[in-house]
Amino acid sequence: EKTLKIVADSEEEAEALAKELAEKYNLEVTIERNPEEEGKYVITIKIKP
Results as ranks from 00 to 15, higher is better:
32 E>Q: 10
48 K>T: 13
3 T>G: 06
7 V>L: 12
48 K>G: 14
10 S>E: 01
36 E>V: 11
29 V>L: 04
31 I>P: 00
8 A>N: 01
44 T>N: 06
19 K>I: 06
44 T>L: 07
40 K>G: 12
7 V>N: 12
41 Y>L: 05
25 Y>G: 08
6 I>L: 05
36 E>N: 15
38 E>A: 05
30 T>V: 12
10 S>H: 02
8 A>Q: 02
16 A>P: 00
46 K>M: 09
17 L>D: 00
22 A>E: 10
31 I>A: 01
35 P>S: 11
21 L>V: 03
48 K>I: 12
21 L>C: 04
36 E>R: 11
4 L>C: 15
31 I>L: 04
31 I>F: 06
22 A>W: 13
40 K>S: 10
6 I>S: 01
8 A>W: 02
36 E>Y: 14
14 A>C: 03
6 I>K: 02
17 L>V: 10
26 N>Q: 13
48 K>E: 08
3 T>V: 13
14 A>S: 02
1 E>P: 08
29 V>F: 11
23 E>F: 06
46 K>L: 14
49 P>G: 13
11 E>T: 05
16 A>F: 09
48 K>C: 11
32 E>T: 13
21 L>H: 02
17 L>C: 05
4 L>K: 05
14 A>M: 03
42 V>C: 03
38 E>G: 12
30 T>A: 05
38 E>P: 13
39 G>C: 08
45 I>W: 01
48 K>A: 11
2 K>G: 11
46 K>D: 04
20 E>F: 15
1 E>I: 10
6 I>W: 15
1 E>W: 01
36 E>F: 11
30 T>I: 09
1 E>T: 07
39 G>T: 03
14 A>F: 01
37 E>N: 10
2 K>V: 15
34 N>C: 15
49 P>R: 10
16 A>S: 09
41 Y>S: 02
47 I>G: 05
42 V>N: 04
46 K>E: 06
38 E>R: 03
47 I>K: 05
11 E>P: 08
41 Y>P: 02
35 P>T: 10
49 P>A: 14
34 N>P: 07
10 S>W: 01
27 L>C: 13
5 K>E: 07
33 R>T: 08
28 E>T: 10
20 E>Y: 15
46 K>G: 04
20 E>Q: 12
11 E>S: 08
17 L>G: 01
1 E>N: 11
33 R>Y: 08
49 P>S: 14
37 E>V: 11
6 I>E: 02
3 T>E: 09
19 K>V: 06
28 E>K: 05
6 I>H: 03
15 E>P: 00
26 N>M: 06
28 E>S: 08
21 L>I: 11
43 I>T: 01
5 K>Q: 13
22 A>P: 00
14 A>Y: 01
2 K>R: 10
36 E>W: 12
13 E>F: 06
44 T>S: 07
22 A>H: 11
24 K>W: 06
6 I>C: 06
28 E>N: 08
35 P>R: 07
17 L>N: 01
48 K>P: 14
6 I>T: 01
16 A>L: 13
26 N>H: 11
43 I>L: 10
13 E>P: 00
33 R>N: 08
32 E>C: 08
27 L>Y: 15
20 E>G: 08
32 E>V: 08
30 T>K: 07
49 P>N: 15
44 T>E: 03
44 T>G: 02
25 Y>Q: 03
2 K>A: 14
18 A>T: 02
19 K>A: 09
26 N>W: 12
29 V>A: 06
49 P>Q: 13
32 E>R: 07
37 E>G: 10
20 E>M: 15
34 N>F: 10
8 A>M: 15
27 L>K: 04
43 I>R: 00
28 E>Y: 05
2 K>M: 08
19 K>L: 06
19 K>Q: 08
32 E>A: 11
21 L>K: 00
9 D>W: 11
41 Y>M: 04
40 K>L: 03
18 A>P: 00
38 E>Y: 08
43 I>F: 01
28 E>V: 12
36 E>I: 11
7 V>P: 10
14 A>T: 01
37 E>T: 10
46 K>H: 14
26 N>D: 12
8 A>Y: 03
3 T>F: 10
46 K>F: 10
20 E>I: 14
25 Y>L: 06
40 K>N: 05
